[in-house]
Write a protein that binds this DNA or RNA. Structure first.
Lengths: 329, 329
DNA sequence: CCCCCTCTATTAGCGCAACTGATTCATGGG
DNA sequence: CCCATGAATCAGTTGCGCTAATAGAGGGGG
């Protein structure tokens, strides 16, 4: 019996839905349906009563669900316990990151990690977001940091931060005086410095603006946040950037940020940053430790909201949150 | 992760041997080796230190072993709990048995089962032993009773009884006066009534006799014990039969049994009876109940030794005991 | 001391099990 | 009544785990 199948069953039950349970495990709805059916066949017992709508757990199903949950939890605890026992010294963390993750923050993390685990090495490489999943699947990197990640068959996505996006403009700009949030429509026609086409954040940003009927005049495109900020400082136009990456410029008063918000109750535009790593094979102890450090650390330093960490045992390594942002509109 | 792999690992550890651990799970030694290696890969930790001979568990291995054991146990308990909750009424037990299982005993079991589970049906079919595994794999029968069973990929063998074989002869025969066990060599040249060629018990019997250099004159061959007994009663010769099946004839004094034993410490010749059923897919509640009845009942009625039931969690459904009897000499 | 014998690792190849994508089916809501 | 939604089913493909054969590594006996 696959432990994965047990986990799928648990997720199906928790979500009261085969599709969502499947999504939480990064498999197709079909796979989830088949997995549960096979469980029922092997057990020789009906776990789910499909005659009523919505379906319900049978008594056997309830019993099995509770047991399953405990077994799956126990196994994952066991895995962690085995790993914690390992000595991270001598191992290398090969980190692949997008350019614009917030260089300062990242180097702070790395410094703290190096201090905590003296024997470990960290290799950071910055690259185009599209390269990161490939590199991880090819085992050229252990862990990646990128935005709008989508989980895959052998790629685990752990939601990390929710960067709220804000309008950035020079102090002289008319927006700079605003004390209240700007509505997207107010941006119409403005000169706009933005991300390169081909970056996921650009795609999402365009989608967001189009959804609100905003038409901007793109005057420059860059592949790093640093370049965009520079252009805005030089007066090329305004930009929409993660607020947390603008901290220093705001302090130096070379840039001003204005919150971007809709009034219709729609969530503000956020850029979900994720930690990704390969699935199945376990990571070396140093990598595990590094990821633990990233996740456990509050977002206090950056001001970003930590991405909702799924409750114990629920949606373990789901990453569905990030995926649903990218989902069809 | 396959729960089966965890169980293989546990068995390997318990037996301190990859080969025996593999055997206990009815897989090849190679499969066990690969399973453990894959576990180590996935965990990213060494579980077994192969540098010393004999190999030893690493500290991580010990930790993982304990956890594994508990998880596997827990899962099987869970499976059983789910099944116990099911109502056996309305289900049918399709039992396939060899002719010579001891008809009286079997019907007693069936009667008791029918009394215990009024709603269930039992269909007994007697057939040639070679047919039984096939029928079970084709899902034409649920459970089989046969001798010298060998487990297979999708056939579980549960050791059941150890029938000790004894010499049977008419009261007038010279052996009938014996008060001590007969050594095999003393049988030399005797007229012999035995099982049909093609029956496993015949094969094993011949092997046993050849090993002890005994040459008998086969005067008749039958496919059921009842016929053999009849022939012996008629004075055709002697036979070697399960002692427990001779009870009635001995009481009626139509036959005499004499223990058959070697002096060299070799175990007496026994015929292992096994309960077989399909692997993987779970059996219906009535079948489960029936098997439980067969196993839990002491061998008091028959005088056969119950086959050593493996201790809790050890060699679950192994059937290795029976297999090793059939093993290469 | 050498050889053999046992036990585990490794490799190649095969078969099945599980996944995906497409489609059908069932049901409840607008 | 028809459409939207969610689960089941089906066909096709891939990849995993198995077996069988073989290599390699110790340990024990002659």
């Amino acid at each position: 019996m696959h432990l994965e199948a047990l986990n799928i069953f648990c997720d199906v039950v928790r979500h009261q839905s085969f599709s969502r349970g499947a999504l939480a495990n990064s498999v197709s709805q079909s796979a989830a349906s088949q997995a549960v059916r096979q469980l029922e066949r092997r057990l020789g017992a009906q776990l789910i009563d499909r005659s009523r709508r919505p379906w319900q757990l049978t008594p056997e199903g309830k019993l099995f669900f509770q047991g399953c949950q405990e077994i799956v939890d126990r196994y994952h605890e066991l895995e962690e316990a085995v790993q914690r026992r390992q000595d991270p010294s001598g191992y290398t963390v090969r980190l692949a990151s997008i350019y614009s993750v917030g260089l300062h923050d990242l180097s702070q993390y790395v410094d703290r990690f190096r201090a905590a685990v003296p024997g470990a090495h960290v290799d950071i490489e910055y690259m185009h977001p599209d390269e990161i999943p490939t590199r991880i699947q090819n085992d050229q990197s252990d862990v990646g940091l990128l935005a709008f990640a989508t989980p895959g068959r052998d790629l685990t996505v752990v939601p990390w931060r929710q960067q709220t996006m804000a309008v950035a403009c020079p102090p002289a700009h008319r927006f700079a005086q605003r004390t209240t949030a700007i509505g997207p429509w107010e941006l119409n026609g403005a000169a706009f410095v933005t991300f390169d086409r081909g970056l996921p954040v650009r795609r999402e940003l365009d989608r967001y603006l189009r959804r609100h009927g905003v038409d901007l005049e793109v005057v420059a495109e860059f592949d790093t946040i640093e370049n965009i900020k520079q252009a805005v400082e030089d007066g090329a136009g305004i930009a929409i950037l993660p607020e947390s990456t603008l901290r220093r410029e705001v302090e130096r008063q070379t840039l001003v940020t204005v919150a971007l918000d809709t009034l219709d109750g729609e969530a503000a535009f956020v850029r979900p940053l994720s930690i990704v790593h390969r699935r199945r094979r376990r990571l070396n102890p140093a990598v595990t430790q590094f990821i633990r450090l990233l996740r456990l650390d509050g977002a206090g330093q950056t001001g970003d909201a930590p991405a909702g960490r799924p409750a114990k045992a629920e949606d373990r390594y789901a990453g569905a949150g990030a995926a649903s942002v990218t989902g069809t509109p």
